[in-house]
Write a protein that binds this DNA or RNA. Structure first.
Lengths: 380, 380
DNA sequence: CTGTTAGCGCCTTCAG
DNA sequence: CTGAAGGCGCTAACAG
């Protein structure tokens, strides 16, 4: 214990933490291992002592290493008495099986899966990660996280890091122009699953949203409500999703016989607040749109800002649901992000069982949630 | 390649993926490894072939294993010519150094850090994870993710999984009643950093928010604006943060000479929409509060729903910023979530350098962002 | 039911 | 500058 150290803390930001229960304060504890089962044997002097190994436990328990191994591997034939003796020794030594060594022995593949996302602060990716993690945890697989920060050039390097850790599979949000560099890995038995956008030049499963027809659904709903002049605003980020959604918008307007839809498309790709500006542009037209569709949540924010007090006049539907959209009565094209991650995980588990099956292109469903803003009729 | 397999896909949800660039369609490619540098040597028949090892590369390059090792470890003395030969052989065999084996040799500790969060779908935790990942990535450390799903009983099991993977350090959002079970690990050299709430009965660094005085700041601002009847709504989740924020609220009211603040505290812990109900309760009082403070983003959503059209009458400030709060003119007590993760990572890196230093209790700053809702004066 | 042998892929000695 | 042996911690394969 380093309790005696806790009193000589210098600085400004640092204070001793104070536990809320049991012992009045950690700093006040006696310098043994208070609260623990007091195994002793652990001299407080040596902070860095090497961990106990199988052999150590075996020695203490008076058995062979293999027997200890059997106890910790679970399903082996070990006499109850022996098992107890081994467990006692293991607890005394704080033994923990080393998964690194175990994995090495098992063909050098770890029990992990790598997830490569783009901009790590984008909550969409994290929801996907969450869905994945939940499913993988059920199967005792842990998830390693890495981010490309949406830099195409870093994808291969990031992936490499994960491969060197011998992940059993890779789930990636493709950002590089080409994923063919992964073909060799796939052949070597590391499945690749793409999320949000498909891979290019690589045979891989893909889990994407129903972008195109999902957007078309929303536009159709507006058309049904009497709208003809419908704006579309999107800041292109992920090219694939963006293209698909734009295509869906056009599909629906074409169906409706609207031929000049291009006039109401605004697809800026500059920084700053292009979406807000785009929305203002549209609203300033001599014949402004009576409804606006946003292609992603970033664009939604811009449009909502631009609409301001005119929120009750112009219909609006945005792709991607968001916190409080419910409370604010904003209609959206929504989907289950967790489900996306779950599907990725499930596909991945299937792949591990059968690496040779054909690649699947899975679309996660989307649906329009009517909350008011999307049901406003055209002004005229 | 399994291209020929792609045509006989059965089902409903599955379609062949179509690349956007270069080759018109993966399914139409010749069955070689199109697009690659065509290293050949990799028979498409054997999907599961074992990976090349250091020894394989050495054999092909006509050198010893150690030489290859030196090349891949970077800073060794290797003749340029030898190096080239080794690299050529490595590329041909698609060699990748096995970090598992490497870590095993290096004292059995991996180059990873484990992050244990609570509810994995809570974006707060993910923002923290994001901040951590960015900082750790700079140091070549990867992050392993695990979640307790806010189940106190699962914490130890989850932590154990990570420890078995020999993470170099643990960052956890404590949820169990007691973290003393980690004391042994700390002594064995695995630092533990707590995020959002401090550990109990364990000497560990903690990175938390400036919960108490941050909340007090907001209440003081309301008081300054003339408010005396100020409600506080919070659904208790994380006990520590909740207690601290409530205490801050009381601090400020006490300072202002308000003695009956308890009447305006609503701290439900049932499921459903307790926060919204709480807000309605407050508004239905004979002398309703002229301002409401929410203790977390969940509570904020409830209050905003409850306020509805009366948003312009009653002042409101919520703890935690959220998407579009800006666009909606909602004042909040905000902080930099990424910074929290960054601080955790930095502390952790320090700890790895100096495992014996005193534990630090670090508070990440909070500040009130005035956007309108919090600046509404009292009605009377 | 338990122990022995050998080796997973790599790297630290220690010699050339 | 390069190579040969041995072992990190664990576990298949084979005995007993």
């Amino acid at each position: 214990m380093t309790c005696h150290l806790e009193r000589r803390i210098p600085g400004t930001l640092c204070r001793v933490s104070e536990p809320n229960t049991r012992s009045p304060a950690v700093a006040g504890e006696p310098d043994g291992d208070g609260g623990l089962e007091s195994v002793a044997l652990t001299p407080p002097t040596r902070v860095t002592r090497s961990r106990a190994t199988l052999a150590d436990v075996a020695r203490l328990a008076g058995v062979s290493a293999k027997t200890v191994s059997r106890v910790f591997s679970g399903n082996a034939y070990v006499a109850d008495q022996t098992r107890d003796r081994v467990m006692a020794a293991a607890n005394r030594l704080r033994f923990r099986p080393n998964d690194l060594a175990r994995s090495l022995r098992h063909g050098g593949v770890a029990n992990t899966v790598g997830f490569v996302m783009g901009d790590i602060t984008n909550q969409f990716y994290f929801q996907v990660a969450a869905g994945m993690e939940r499913e993988l945890a059920k199967h005792g697989i842990t998830m390693i996280l890495a981010a490309t920060e949406d830099d195409p050039g870093s994808e291969e390097r990031v992936v490499e890091t994960l491969l060197n850790q011998r992940v059993r599979a890779l789930v990636i949000v493709p950002i590089a122009a080409d994923q063919s560099y992964l073909e060799g890995e796939r052949q070597l038995g590391t499945p690749v699953i793409c999320v949000d956008r498909p891979a290019r030049n690589l045979v891989a499963d893909a889990i994407v949203l129903r972008n195109r027809s999902g957007t078309a659904d929303a536009v159709r709903a507006l058309v049904t409500n009497g709208h003809r002049r419908i704006g579309f605003i999107c800041s292109p980020g992920g090219l694939y999703t963006h293209e698909q959604r734009l295509a869906g918008y056009r599909d629906a307007l074409r169906e409706a016989g609207v031929t000049d839809s291009r006039r109401w498309e605004r697809l800026k790709d500059v920084d700053g607040r292009p979406d807000e500006e785009s929305a203002r542009e549209l609203m300033a037209l001599p014949d402004p749109p009576t409804a606006i569709v946003a292609g992603n949540n970033h664009a939604s924010a811009g449009v909502i800002r631009a609409l301001g007090e005119r929120r009750s006049e112009i219909a609006f539907i945005g792709f991607d649901d968001f916190e409080l959209a419910d409370a604010l009565g904003i209609s959206v094209i929504a989907y289950d992000t967790l489900e996306m991650g779950r599907r990725a995980a499930l596909r991945l588990l299937e792949r591990l069982d059968d690496p040779t099956g054909p690649p699947q292109h899975i679309e996660v469903d989307t649906h329009v949630i009517a909350r008011g803003s999307g049901e406003i009729p055209p002004a005229s």
